[in-house]
Structures are given as C-alpha cells and as structure tokens.
Design a protein around this nucleic acid. Structure first.
Lengths: 203, 203
DNA sequence: ATAGATACATACCGTCGGTACGTCAACCGT
DNA sequence: ACGGTTGACGTACCGACGGTATGTATCTAT
C-alpha cells in the first residue's frame, strides 16, 4: 500500500497559514472597529482577539490604518453585493430605487455604519475613501444614472454632481435612520422623499 | 496727587488671562487640525504654538477632544453666520437656495472642511456631531423648509428626513467640490442639480 | 491683611503604534 | 534524502503621545 504523499493534516501549508491569519485579523478587527471605533481599538487588542502577536500583524499589514483599509474593503464589498442583489432583473429605474433602499438598509446596521460612514473618511482621508467607494457603491450609482439618461428616462444632465448629491444624501440618511426610534416609519418617509426627488429628474 | 487705584496696565486680570489663553489655544488648534487632521496633531504641538504648556490646556479643557469641540463650535458658528447673511431679506425660497450656495462655498474651504465634515463625526461621534449641527446649519435648513411648507410653496411632507437628505447631499457635494479641478463650473452644475431637486418639492 | 480660588508650569506615568531581530517550520532545487 | 532559502511569525524594545499629580505665583473677596 503506497503511502500517498498527502500533507499531514495536523500541519498547514504556508498559503493556508497566511490566509487563516489575515482572515482572523480582519474579522476581529472589524468587530472591534465597529463596536468601539477606530481610535479606541488598540493593536494589542486586535492581535489578542485574533490569537496572534503584533509581529504577525506587521508581517501582513503596513500598520493600523492598513488593517482598517482591509476591513473597509470587506465592508464595501458586502454592501455592493447587497445593492446588486436588490432587484437584479428589473428595469433600470426600479433597480435604482431598490438599490437605494438596499443601501439605506445595509448602511443602517451598526457593524457597517461606523466603519464605512464615520471613521473611514477620517482614517483614510476623503480622497482615498472616495476612491474605494468609487469602486463599489458609487460606481453602481453612476452606472444606474448613466443608463437612465441613455434610456431617456431622466433628463440629460451632468451625472457626477448628481451622483455625489445622491450618495451624500443617502449616507446622511443612513446615519440618521440608525438612531431613529421609529426606524421603519422613518425609512419609508425617507424612501418616499428620495423617490420624489428622483422623480424630478424625469423628463 | 492721589494714586488712582487703576490696575496696572502691564498686568492682566484673571478673566483677561483666561480669555487670551483659551483664544490662543483654540485658534492655533484650529489651524493645526485643519492642516493636518485631528489624529496627526499632538497636544505638545498645540501648546507650543499657543505659547503655553499642557498644564494650561488641561486647566481649560478636559482633553484633546474637548479642544476639538471648542474649535468645531467656532467653525460651525462661522458657517451659520455666512448662511444667514447670504440673502437676509429675500423670500424664503430665495433664502434657501442662497443659503445652500453659501454653505457649499464655505464648506469647500480647506480650513473648514476637514474639521467640520471629515474629522468631527469620528472624533465626537455622530450623535454629538449632529447635536452641534442641529444648533446651527441644520436648524436653519429645517426652519427654511418649514417656512416653505407653511407658505404652501412646497408640498406638505415630513420635514426631518428631507432636511437630512439635503444636508447630507450638500456635505458630500462640498467634499467633492473642494477637490474638483474645475471648481467654479462644478459648483454651478451642483447648484443647478440641487435646484432641480428642490423644484420637485413644489406643488 | 489674609485665606481661598484661579491660572498656570513642571515632572511624571501608562499606553500605544511601530521597529529590530531572533526562531522555526515549510519549501525547493539538487 | 537533504541542505540552503524563504516566509511566517514571536519577542523585546523604543519614542511619542494623551493624560495626571503636584507645585507655585497671582488675583480676589472679605
């Protein structure tokens, strides 16, 4: 019976080690950042939660802000996914409205909000924050608006300022909604107002 | 010749001292916060710039975030004043539009932006930030919108979500405009889009 | 005049982000 | 099979920072 050269299961390959460690660090860092805010979480706290040491952290990341950036990318990706899944096969207008609702719902959750909307601009600087956003939510928004202009659904106009106005409106609305004592009703009011604003763009 | 008991002019009363020291601290802190961001300014830096020591700072403020709060109050007050002065005697609709323009212009300036729009939510927490905002710009916005509803200029609707949407839209627009290579044109585009959105609220 | 309050300055502490360096297992060419 | 190399950490340590404890000179109320 030939001994198959399978790597012993008690040990791990280097790639596995790397992936496991980074995954643990990012996951625990995300939990802590969301709960206490970037400034009030220490690296010691993070590495202890992840079961490693600072040496490991600095082997994979260039510093505290780099860990935050990795966390933020995860969060952004999650939100973008939820927006894309909101109404995947509907017409562009419905997609836009459904996407806005999905964004508001996701961004209202505390685990997402503090990281993505409160700490991110301060930690990364606004430009880097926008660059990251431009690769996800903002891109989806601009694409939807461009599509609507091409289809003649809304009147031709500069897309970029419109996208920024809408994006900012939803960011702030999400922050407000998260602290609302009557969140469901306020969400509906917000969506109604937002839809009314969007209607003004139609021909 | 009776010696008039006038306090010698070379010395200062305690009230004068207090006012001078806090003024110097807040002014220099504001300059540094605006230039480098809250996290990258040390207390040592601030007190050296103001020509005092940390003992003086901690006599007047409870900590670094308290200094920031004092700075932010100044900035907010300044912006509110500029909004109020935008079109003081015009009709409510014109006042609203002019106020929005004034806000965008003020919030685009680097000395105001980083403090008020980027660092403030992260340092104070969003709730405290909003509380401060609610006392100034937000109050003006809500008042203007309420007036317009009362006058029947715009259709009756929940004011608060609308105010948050508009406030957030302008915050984000200001951040974007500040980095625009074509700021004047983009400002006009933004105002045009914003006005179009506001028009949708009319009956 | 004097007792207390006020407005600081000085010296110091614990913690934090970051770095230098050592160690040991996984990899890879021979 | 094996010896050198690389990668993935752990350990020990540093300077800087926010914050505190305490001393002291000056003003003010009585």
């Amino acid at each position: 019976m030939p001994t198959t050269p399978q790597p012993t299961r008690t040990t791990r390959t280097k790639a596995q080690q790397r992936e496991e460690t980074t995954r643990a660090l990012v996951e625990h860092a995300r939990r802590l950042f969301a709960a206490k805010g970037y400034a009030h979480v220490s690296l010691t706290e993070i590495v202890q939660a992840a079961g490693v040491t600072k040496g490991a952290l600095y082997h994979h990341f260039s510093g505290k802000d780099d860990v935050f950036r990795a966390v933020l990318e995860h969060v952004h990706g999650e939100v973008a996914e939820r927006i894309a899944d909101a109404a995947p096969d509907a017409d562009p207008w419905t997609q836009l409205v459904a996407g806005c609702r999905a964004f508001l719902t996701a961004s209202t959750e505390p685990g997402i909000q503090r990281i993505m909307l409160i700490d991110a601009p301060s930690v990364l600087g606004w430009s880097d924050w926008r660059d990251l956003d431009a690769a996800t939510s903002m891109q989806q928004l601009e694409a939807a608006l461009t599509q609507l202009v091409d289809d003649g659904v809304i009147v031709d106009q500069p897309i970029t300022p419109l996208a920024h106005l809408l994006s900012g409106a939803m960011n702030e609305a999400a922050l407000w909604l998260a602290r609302s004592p009557n969140r469901d009703r306020d969400l509906e009011d917000t969506m109604a107002t937002l839809t009314r604003l969007l209607q003004s763009l139609r021909g």
